[in-house]
Design a protein around this nucleic acid. Sequence first.
DNA 1: ATGGTTGTGGGCTGTCAAGCCCAATTTGGG
DNA 2: CCCAAATTGGGCTTGACAGCCCACAACCAT
Lengths: 219, 219
Amino acid sequence: MDAATEARVPQKLTDKGRATRARILEHAAELIYAKGVHATNNEVLRRAAGVSGSQLNHYFPTKESLVLAVIEWQAERVLTFHRSERFTQFDSLDSLREWAGFYIAYERSYQEGCTLGSLASEIIKTDLDVRTELANAFEQWRDIFRDGLERMQRLGRISTEADPTQLAYLLLSAFQGGMLLAQVARDIAPLKDALRAAIDHVQTFAMPAAVGVLDPFRH
Amino acid sequence: MDAATEARVPQKLTDKGRATRARILEHAAELIYAKGVHATNNEVLRRAAGVSGSQLNHYFPTKESLVLAVIEWQAERVLTFHRSERFTQFDSLDSLREWAGFYIAYERSYQEGCTLGSLASEIIKTDLDVRTELANAFEQWRDIFRDGLERMQRLGRISTEADPTQLAYLLLSAFQGGMLLAQVARDIAPLKDALRAAIDHVQTFAMPAAVGVLDPFRH
DNA sequence: ATGGTTGTGGGCTGTCAAGCCCAATTTGGG
DNA sequence: CCCAAATTGGGCTTGACAGCCCACAACCAT
């Protein structure tokens, strides 16, 4: 898989070629996020990226290779974002609330949904062979939360009785499901409530010492 | 919208016609659930339902009208299922666990996802005008949970401090998100953990009197 | 400078699905 | 029994998109 999409990039392309490929990829990601995979056809992408038809065939021989590259690009983006300093590796309840606050304030949450989840849902039933790549990305995403929760346990911020895997899946599921409901309703409320409740649940495992600090945020 | 899909059914069709239309609809719903909207084309549906091409045009003039009818059909199904005796209007924590148990045991959860959520995700970004119908269905679904939670409050089973709307969105989001993650991973674990944690959160609002009865099920 | 390699441009074709039409058959009321 | 409306069958056309090809231009190493 990587051989068809990644391995070629660093070796055979010059700076200009790589820039062109990156431009196509970014426009493809944006178009797919805004309009969906199906609506992102050859001509639309060509006009958006300012390239000609054969370039798409050159850098992305098939649509499947393009979609796969977009998945990798979006996965890279969302994982990098979650690993950024801003969330301090999710080592506190505050960082979780900061995270939720970002997506609740983000306009496109209830317009286009999750950059990875929407894409996954749209194509998971098609014959495009991208499931493994998506599964990998979601596993890493879960691990970010799980690692954070385990760190909270080691720091004595939440009880060791909490199940980090289970809570990580709750956070990620509430996020994905809330995004879908918000998108369908064109209203951020479902996402806001789901994330709020999910993080409140993590907070029920907060240790007595930490509760004193964090309690003002409860309701 | 109803005028194009529903209003015609009870008036102008005979028994045989209605049976044919129902057969097309059921096969369309099954095919769309299993293979997706895009893969469910004219010919495949014609062969599956054992009807000829012009019948599709007769009962469902456009693909949009077919998809809309399938959405209504699936919404009806899932809402009826949730309103069935089995879950006693979700008036207890046990009924929530019974509900989660059903989908965790259901083979197709991690193969095809949610009958309504998968469909919604697949087509929400296309030009098909089905968003309102979907939003309506999800609102009713949320209301089933919310009404149940409010009933639990009136029965003194959970605290009046709980926010039924928020908890309803948590349950529905955890379900939808968990379904997506399970489908992508081809593993029921994400759904199981997300639902488990979501219901555990509802349980944190259980009233002292009720806790004595329900505590054996905690962990 | 020059030839070969790499990148670029636009046009072309095969495929596939949606929507439509006309002819044949069946049904149901009078 | 007959007529009109409803239902059925299969084929056909149009439109859209993915993948491909050939001619041209730019770059770079020798």
